[in-house]
Nucleic acid binder design. Structure first.
Lengths: 137, 137
DNA sequence: GTTACTGTACTAGCGATCTAGTACACCATG
DNA sequence: CATGGTGTACTAGATCGCTAGTACAGTAAC
């Protein structure tokens, strides 16, 4: 489980951590039943405060992705993969909704939006082929 | 030119103002050559500080949408409608890009995204018919 | 029981951002 | 020129969110 954070990013560190854990769990990297890295361990690796990691984990616990095993650590729940997958879909749906709303308010048609999506999709995949899945924020 | 702001919204007041002016200008409401409401006038109507309105106007001036006519007010430029339209398209494109990125990272196909867009579009237009163009943030 | 690990609660400080207050510079109008 | 309108610069206050420090509570292993 490889994690990285950008302290200078506008998106808070704890969100970056949580998002990456969700991403990983959805992909099955820390499988259900496994423990995620301890807050102190991960904090040391990422050079952040343990509480920052703890906050990310708490959010994930609230989502039902992690479960506290006091004295042992935090465990990936059985339903976590499904939850993480659903969570990602929800995020995507929100983004799509934002775009559609804005487009509709500007008088664009459904076809216009479709064209935009196709366009961005093409750009993304061509770029992806060149340099891999790189994300900038 | 009807403007409203939500002081309790997470999006800053000056951005709300600027966005609404852009929206209006794109629709031709304050046509090129016309003056937008003075900062004090608008501030009084919206119950905010004149400087807050001024900041919105400054952003718009930076975009080339408004032009300062000292002693008279701020005027909508000739190229403003085109700019505002382009600006809105840019915003839409950004939203679409966000959605596409997220979707691609989750392993969705182009068809999946298309289905999502159609779905949200249908929801939006049906709701639009029921209660008009209502936006929540 | 002791030790070493786990997560957690509370507090504090730092930093950024938005908003407001005040005073100033400029122009049109009479 | 005087007045009342315009935008603007500067400063200050207030708020909010993130991060870190510290101390505490619980569990596992020896």
């Amino acid at each position: 489980m490889l994690l990285t954070v950008r302290p200078d990013s506008p998106v808070p560190i704890y969100e970056q951590i949580a998002a990456q854990v969700v991403f990983g769990v959805a992909a099955g990297d820390p499988p259900p039943g496994d423990l995620v890295p301890s807050v102190r361990d991960l904090a040391q690796r990422l050079l952040v405060n343990p509480n920052t990691v703890a906050r990310a984990y708490q959010d994930l616990e609230r989502l039902g992705v992690l479960e506290t095993k006091r004295g042992r650590g935090m465990e990936v729940t059985a339903k976590a993969p499904a939850l993480c997958d659903a969570r990602r879909r929800e995020i995507i749906r929100d983004r799509v909704r934002d775009a559609v709303r804005e487009a509709a308010a500007s008088g664009l048609t459904a076809d216009d939006v479709q064209a935009l999506v196709d366009d961005e999709w093409a750009k993304l995949s061509s770029r992806g082929r060149r340099r891999g899945r790189e994300e900038r924020t």
